[in-house]
Amino acid sequence: MPENKADRYRRVAYYPGCALEGTGHAYNRSTRQLGKALGLDLVEVPDWNCCGAMEAKNVDPKVQTYLSARVLSLTANRMGMDVVMAPCNGCYHNLKKAEHDLANDPGSAEVVARLARKAGDPAYQPGEVETVHALEWLKAAIGEEELRRRVRGGLKGLKVANYYGCMYTRPRHIFPEKDSGPASESTAKPHFMDDLLAAAGAENVEFALKTACCGGAHTLSDSDVSTHLVLNILQAAEAAGAEVIATECPTCHSGLELHQVRAEKRLGVRTGVKIIYFTQLLGLALGLSPRKVGLHENVSDARELLAARGVT
């Protein structure tokens, strides 16, 4: 196994997850296009299954552990790879949580081994696969300097609020590599997306609600609360001077889009800030066409703004 992260991450297993085949399709598309443009190889995990998202754990937490462990097992045993990249916060979080539970909780390990045996999958041994988020992948494989060199036109002073949501940093114990020194990601004030977008020319605004909750888990079952939480985020971003909220999770992204519309309809509160995946912004900065990064698939229509700013 090469020691250098930049080399290890040049070719990784890719776990898109269910949302990226549906509402988060633009994130899937822009992530793949970005990989291609930067010469990074994404190999999709064969026959992957849902990680359990925010829901399966409420029926039983070990169901979620099994579902996520199966994806890790496919990566290790079927693909023979040792890094899996998940762009979705939910998938990323659940794979990290399964990794932690299998290593530290004998009860979880026993149930997952039993389920895997019955299902006929090879067992997963913790430590075989490293799970990384799209942010960690790009930060290590490309990095700011390389990005600055490759950027054409760039995001030229576009005012961006970076929104990371809950599952990328909480709870801390499932992310042992975070909060571990100057180059590492921070769980209190994450900055990997800020770093990448700044390298592409964006002007990041001081945004206090980076890791606030959008109510994504109850977006349909307790919509009034979700609308309230999303509206807080949208208004705080606008108050900070942002024209765009950059997202790195399909649930956050569609939650912000959905409740921006719902706040208009139900509360009569209109907000103008645009919601764009960070991979779409990076793709545009590298000179990919709006269509290639799926800008037309967003509900929040940013095409006019980006054209006016000279980004597209």
Partner: peptide, 17 residues
């Protein structure tokens, strides 16, 4: 919601939103 979701995952392995 959690039950509808989990039933679909257990049944098919994946979610179609």
């Amino acid at each position: 919601f959690d039950e509808v979701f989990t039933e679909q995952v257990i049944q098919r392995g994946r979610i179609e939103e």
